[in-house]
Design a binder for these strands. Structure first.
Lengths: 350, 350
DNA sequence: CTGAAAGCGCTTACAG
DNA sequence: CTGAAAGCGCTTACAG
């Protein structure tokens, strides 16, 4: 029965049409579910499609129809769990809408980002979800993408562009974290990690300042410590918190990676994170819940953000003329074993 | 100077040719770097390409040339750090070779895998890297992919297919883990977690048995505990290790997620992981190094595996007639704070 | 209800 | 060194 031919070249519409004694046009109508085709003809065509193992060539169809079913996702690096979860959410949502995700990683390099965007643009994406590498030049990115492809910028502001933007509520998150420490009696609170010139770091510092101001506290210069947002750098910078007395008794960290690094750095200096010094993170990466002590942090639900990003770009594809959207995603405090992490230091309350 | 026109429709080869007073053929030769074109003509064309902001339509070129520059990557889920790192490695390597990664997630569902493969096949991938969902039917997958697209199967065997296969050395890894426990004095060692019918679980159990056999030990039925490879399930199954005396004093776990779950389950039962009961994992996910106590485990370097997978599929694309390759990737023991994790239980050595 | 024809954006022998 | 022509696999008015 099944005389499926040895796989000689691709099976095309023309092959099916020939086998059924029909024109390519009619077979195409069957494929696209047109109601014009006689039901008996449709059945005949469908049987033949199956028999020959026909695979639709969406690229050819898209070329003719001048549409695209791909969406490019450009992120720093999947080995960062925040972006991995984000990508999972994007892909999940795009797939249900019939789009395919074209992946590109920049590793925070502006040059790689340039190369990746060029390559992805040649694959004619319907839209782009872009989490800009640090130090991206908006005008340059804009020139490269051109004016015809909608872009959703995620996570980091991109100057000189008028694209949709999805941001975390960084300011509010840092405010929540700082208030949490204030409520537990801390008065000398540092903001630890991140690069001052990144927009997310600026916003988090802003929220931190606001919460301190509410409590009538002015941060001292020593409380603001910069470092790359990695565990290693954070561990190495730990000492900067203790160069002068009185030292801070707690730190709001730029993100969880920094918080975990700081915890390691504290241990290396003979201090007990949560015991002698309170630490709070940002992101709620999976490690936060298994660290020792477990880490109180600001949960941002990256997977939900991914779904949201996919939804926003799809909406833009449907309605290109809508005004630019600036969406701020909610964040929440995720307290963990606070008795361990957030004990105010004994005999201090100045 | 720069009278770049308002973005009206896509700029094509024909536009450039017209502006330069040349044929499309000549412009195409410039694009493809042909040495046939006069250098002055080339310069003129290149200036015009830049001026009009031309973007190469690779899809159209690929259609004409009957080639493809996409590789599909089908994995369970990016929120699993093992797969996220793997995907990062794949994407990194493919990008350097000029390929784009088409992403698909199955969430371990055979139905989703079917849908994802259908969608990806329509995008005409040059090849597929497939980490099969648990319970995949090889014949069914094979029927869907057809005989024209090379596939590299990763991580889990797929029966009834003759595709290239990249596997972790599961047997050896479990052997290393078990020997490590034996060397530290344990005699009653469990194998905890995983589904008996998954190939990776079978292989890990096999290595475990072999190491025990080397020590003249026959595992008791109670030492083999099945559970889904998640933290939650593992925590819930912890009790199964202690239903009868004498209970095991250590466990080789199916993977790190299970090991972390078991550690939580031990704590919930008033036991100290590493103190009263030794635990060893498999994978070396990032949490392993920050868990408390830190987790000794088998490192598999998923990012390197991703690069390896990309390399293997590209090799297959270059040389389709090569005999089927079955590649086993190395694994190694990653010992951590072994004094905490691997103390043999006091007063026991039967 | 079905077919002939044109065309999406590109490439590739083949002439000249 | 450059151009005319055909064609990749599909879709879409337009006839009939």
């Amino acid at each position: 029965m099944n005389d499926a031919p040895a796989p000689r070249g691709r099976v095309t519409l023309a092959d099916i049409a020939r086998a059924c004694g029909l024109s390519r046009a009619t077979v195409s109508l069957v494929l696209r579910g047109s109601p014009l085709v006689h039901s008996e003809t449709r059945a005949r065509v469908e049987a033949e499609l199956k028999r020959q193992g026909y695979v639709y060539h969406r690229g050819a169809a898209n070329l003719r129809r001048k549409v695209s079913t791909g969406v490019a996702l450009v992120i720093n690096d999947l080995s960062n769990p925040f972006f991995a979860e984000f990508a999972a959410g994007v892909d999940e949502w795009l797939a249900t809408a019939g789009f395919v995700t074209l992946l590109g990683s920049t590793n925070e390099s502006v040059e790689r980002q340039q190369a990746v965007l060029t390559s992805l643009m040649e694959h004619d994406p319907a839209g782009i979800i872009l989490s800009p590498a640090e130090g991206s030049d908006g005008a340059r990115v804009r020139a490269q993408v051109g004016g015809r492809t909608p872009v959703l910028v995620f996570n980091r502001e991109l100057d000189a562009t008028d694209w949709d933007f999805l941001a975390l509520d960084n300011t509010h998150g840092a405010r929540l974290a700082t208030r949490h420490l204030l409520e537990r009696g801390h008065r000398r609170i540092a903001f630890f990690g991140g690069h001052r010139d990144s927009s997310s770091c600026r916003q988090r510092r802003q929220g931190y300042r606001e919460a301190l101001a509410e409590a009538g506290i002015e941060p001292e210069p020593q409380w603001l410590v910069e470092c790359a947002p990695t565990r290693l750098e954070a561990a190495q910078q730990t000492g900067a918190l203790f160069v002068r007395d009185p030292a801070p008794t707690a730190a709001v960290c730029y993100n969880d990676a920094v918080a975990l690094g700081l915890m390691a750095g504290l241990v290396a200096r003979g201090r007990r994170p949560g015991g002698d010094f309170a630490v709070i993170g940002f992101d709620d990466i999976p490690e936060a819940s298994v660290a020792s002590p477990t880490l109180t942090t600001i949960a941002v639900d990256p997977r939900a953000r991914g779904r949201q990003a996919a939804e926003l770009i799809l909406k833009r594809l449907r309605e290109p003329e809508l005004p630019r959207a600036h969406t701020v995603a909610p964040v929440r405090l995720q307290a963990r074993s606070s008795s361990e992490v957030l004990v105010p230091p004994s005999g201090e309350s100045a």
